[in-house]
């Protein structure tokens, strides 16, 4: 049973499905050392072996065991997702709190900035930035999180603005509470549920984004994320001429889809927690 501020949260079938899916992948990620039969960079055998007892999903063009790659990939993909989400959401919270709390010109400036930022098409911009800044894993995480900041900032700002006019906060301010104190003591706890759901939604989004970029060939080419496995599988000239796609293309695509569904379902299940208007 999950409780928040004394209130019981009902997850429902949707929530539990999400938790099962995500727990499975988290388990894979944490126990990769034990579960993966081979290392992520280990060249185990000839290239393009078909699935067998020894190599459950066969081997890829360089002779890596695809099954092991998938397990190691879950660690990298989840790590990317969580890092990008943490960075993006913390940036968004600061952005939104500043805009909402100070209001006036600062608010207008930040919100128009957010408008401009959100109206820009993301993918071409990503490609451009990755080309100039270099496409290391760190840069990809940074790009994804920076692009999330204005969007999350806008959500947070709305909440802060509506809280600002509450009498108890006004009072705390008049009794000499500093801005920092007010934010920490009064605003932050109130927006925490919102932050939490934003975080969950963002993880799935970031994983999908990274996979999309990797699929396009943008990203660290030596990383072993699911997106990169997919990229190399599709880049290989004859993947679709043989049945190799069933064990080289399908499994990573499925993993990406499942994890994203998992995060999306969890986000939905926790929505009433985040949105005060949905509370009974």
């Amino acid at each position: 049973m999950i409780k928040y501020k004394g209130q019981e949260i009902k997850l429902g079938a949707m929530g539990w499905t999400a938790i099962i899916i995500l727990a499975f992948f988290l388990f894979l990620a944490f126990a990769a050392e034990i579960l993966a039969p081979y290392g992520a960079n280990e060249q185990v055998d000839a290239s393009f072996l078909v699935p067998s007892g020894q190599y459950l999903l066969g081997t890829d063009d360089l002779g890596h065991d695809i099954f092991s790659l998938l397990i190691w990939g879950s660690r990298i993909s989840l790590l990317i997702g969580i890092c990008a989400a943490l960075l993006g959401v913390s940036g968004g919270v600061i952005y939104g709190m500043i805009a909402g709390y100070w209001g006036g010109r600062v608010d207008r400036f930040l919100m128009r900035g957010s408008d401009i930022f959100q109206s820009l098409p993301n993918i071409p911009l990503f490609i451009l930035i990755a080309a100039y800044a270099g496409s290391s894993l760190r840069n990809i995480v940074l790009i994804i999180s920076v692009f999330a900041v204005p969007r999350i900032g806008r959500i947070i700002r709305g909440q802060v603005v509506s809280l600002k006019h509450n009498a108890y906060i006004q009072a705390a301010g008049m009794f000499g509470g500093s801005s920092f104190y007010l934010m920490k003591r009064h605003f932050f706890p109130e927006i925490l549920p919102l932050v939490f759901t934003a975080l969950i939604n963002m993880v799935g989004r970031a994983i999908l984004m990274e996979s999309g970029l990797a699929f396009l060939g943008i990203g660290d080419p030596t990383s072993k994320s699911w997106g990169m496995i997919l990229h190399y599988a599709l880049e290989y000239p004859s993947t679709y001429l043989t049945s190799a796609w069933t064990w080289w293309v399908m499994p990573p695509s499925l993993c990406i889809a499942l994890v994203c569904i998992g995060f999306a379902l969890l986000g939905l299940a926790l929505e009433d927690l985040a949105d005060p208007r949905l509370k009974n």
Binding site: N41, Q43, D61, A131, G134, S135, G217, P221, T222
Partner: peptide
């Protein structure tokens, strides 16, 4: 490397590692 050569570089990396030489692959356009 350019990213389309990264796969070949990975193989070179594996070979050099076997004789105790470490490498890092840096991809750029």
């Amino acid at each position: 490397v350019m990213s389309q050569n990264a796969r070949a570089a990975e193989l070179v990396q594996i070979h050099l590692k076997k004789v105790g030489i470490d490498t890092e692959i840096m991809s750029n356009e």
